[in-house]
Nucleic acid binder design. Sequence first.
DNA 1: CGCTCAATGTTACCACCGTCAACACACCGC
DNA 2: GCGGTGTGTTGACGGTGGTAACATTGAGCG
Lengths: 215, 215
Amino acid sequence: MNTVASAAPYHHGDLRRALLDSATAILTETGRWDFSLREVARRAGVSHAASYRHFTDKEALIAAVALTGYETLNTRMTTAIDEATGAVGTLRAIGQAYIGFGVANPALYRLMFGQALPSIEGLPPAVLAVLTEARAVLRGVILAGARAGAFAIDPEDEQEVSVAVVTAWSLVHGFTLLTIDRVVDREVRPQVIDPLAARVAERLIIGLLPTQGRK
Amino acid sequence: MNTVASAAPYHHGDLRRALLDSATAILTETGRWDFSLREVARRAGVSHAASYRHFTDKEALIAAVALTGYETLNTRMTTAIDEATGAVGTLRAIGQAYIGFGVANPALYRLMFGQALPSIEGLPPAVLAVLTEARAVLRGVILAGARAGAFAIDPEDEQEVSVAVVTAWSLVHGFTLLTIDRVVDREVRPQVIDPLAARVAERLIIGLLPTQGRK
DNA sequence: CGCTCAATGTTACCACCGTCAACACACCGC
DNA sequence: GCGGTGTGTTGACGGTGGTAACATTGAGCG
């Protein structure tokens, strides 16, 4: 059994899902990810030790919540890619989807990338897989753009491609976190974030364009 | 021990400092920032309730540790600026100092930017002040470069300058975190981080250069 | 010199937490 | 019907953040 629950378990119905929902609810309501396992159980209407039938650990629960976050992030990115056209447009779309997700789910985003997990190692393999996939998607986009001549990148130079990937990811990741943490512009309103993000992204894109493509 | 600059407390000598030192030591040794107040006190050879004579809260202790981090980061950045020449060189130096600090003190960096602090608001004013100062320094560097014509930025356009500031900070912040969390390149060695950071930074700088300055 | 007193540190205690072991139940195949 | 295993509960343990009452000690003042 186990894994993605489609069949309903015994007593409660689907306690695993209910616990994940409770945790997510607390997360979005309070904006904090240091909730107690007991509170999650309480919220699910269940005894405090019941969680241990579904998660070995508190960390496992957190990781499961994070996993759902990674999955929806991946989904948003791939759908954004599908709807975009052109290398630059695709890159723009992917960044927009990424930042949009982070800003819309700040607590979840911080849990996904800032949490108690000492390092990427030690994460459940499922989480690692999703992360790796996200990176591969981004790399694919940049590689395609390089092959099409839309970026000033040699598609055969793996290192150069990697640098572009890391640069793009760093920029978007950093911008998202700075925005979430209100470091960027404390008086900024949600309506202002989108144009700001767009202009920030443009800075990167300019750096990627071949010389003849620049204004 | 040495003579203390300002105010030396009563019994212990300087328990406040000792507690900060213990916390920092635990932080760098274990790499975790969810240590217990009691462990800090134990390490300082003191009863667990003694901390409350110097810090109102566990969060206050954490914030104090973070503050020391912000201060040394600021110091490193300003000295890097002093030793650099030219707008591009200064920008490079500042980024290098920033990333170098983060990579050298991963746990401290994550505590500074990822921790329990729900948002930037609610932080002690001292922390806010240091953060604001750091941002002003970066803005000054970019503004000077724009005025000197080294960047393709209108120094009179405040928004354009802000965009450049946010872009640079986002890139460096994101790169530092991705590196710390080993998301960037799991097989990467410390020796590889510097060149990688340099090439990432170069991508940004290319985007900032005026057209005639590009290779 | 001795007294006071406030700053500092300690002890004892509270509610709560994560985790575990023992127990209780309920649905499954037989 | 019946056992057994998956599921949830109860109760306990050590540890935690935080508070209050108590002990100590050094500084200022007579």
